[in-house]
Design a protein around this nucleic acid. Structure first.
Length: 193
DNA sequence: AATTAGGAATTTT
DNA sequence: AAAATTCCTAATT
């Protein structure tokens, strides 16, 4: 549950059809350190590491300390109420219940107020559950990504030439950079240490 | 031929 | 005013 909440705050999942467009590469995975891909298998140390890292990277409210001794299994099983109880500051995600199934209202950038930023959009594309912590990515189909971005921004003339220029504006700001071994179409989110 | 890197002007929010 | 877009030149892969 909390996992789903974090994902919903942090970004949306990719549609299955869009998956091949942006692909996380296996190069230089620095953080977070080797953690089982399935949260269910995490021990409390793993949970702690992941929470702190995620909070830091995505500037979430600091709630990690409230979940100190929890295992991954506990964390995944945690309900919204339990979560609020532990961490009153974080009551962002709205939950709607439909026939027992909880649906997280989109707390992602597409409906929360201000215009979406390019880096947020890219992050959304990257934030599939299995991609926790991977932040070096390769754009497999630049034209496709540009098209999607143009759709999201209502900018039909968008192309990779322009999209990449916008990404380059992030170099100075320290949001995205080229990885140490620069490769075509490969970028890296700068994660705070 | 496609991608990268920035400068610079302009537009959008 | 910040973030993106548009357009462009030059260099690199």
């Amino acid at each position: 549950m909390i996992m789903r909440w974090l994902v919903s705050v942090v970004g949306t999942r990719l549609e299955a059809s869009d998956r091949p467009t942006i692909q996380v590469s296996g190069i230089g995975e620095s953080s977070p350190p080797a953690i089982p891909s399935d949260p269910i298998e995490w021990n409390s140390a793993n949970v702690q590491k992941w929470l702190l890292w995620t909070e830091h990277l995505y500037r979430l409210p600091h709630a990690g300390r409230a979940f100190q001794e929890l295992s991954g299994k506990d964390l995944c099983a945690m309900s919204e109420e339990h979560f609020r109880q532990r961490s009153p500051q974080c009551s962002i995600g709205d939950v709607k219940t439909t026939g027992g199934e909880e649906l997280w209202s989109e707390a992602d950038s597409s409906c929360s107020g201000q215009p979406i930023h390019l880096w947020q959009f890219l992050r959304e594309l990257l934030l599939k559950p299995h991609n926790y912590g991977r932040c070096i990515f390769k754009i497999e189909d630049s034209a496709h990504v540009a098209r999607l971005w143009g759709l999201r921004k209502n900018r039909p003339a968008m192309n990779y030439d322009k999209l990449s220029r916008s990404i380059r504006q992030y170099y100075k700001k320290g949001i995205i950079r080229k990885p140490d071994v620069s490769q075509r179409l490969v970028y890296q989110f700068v994660h705070p240490v």
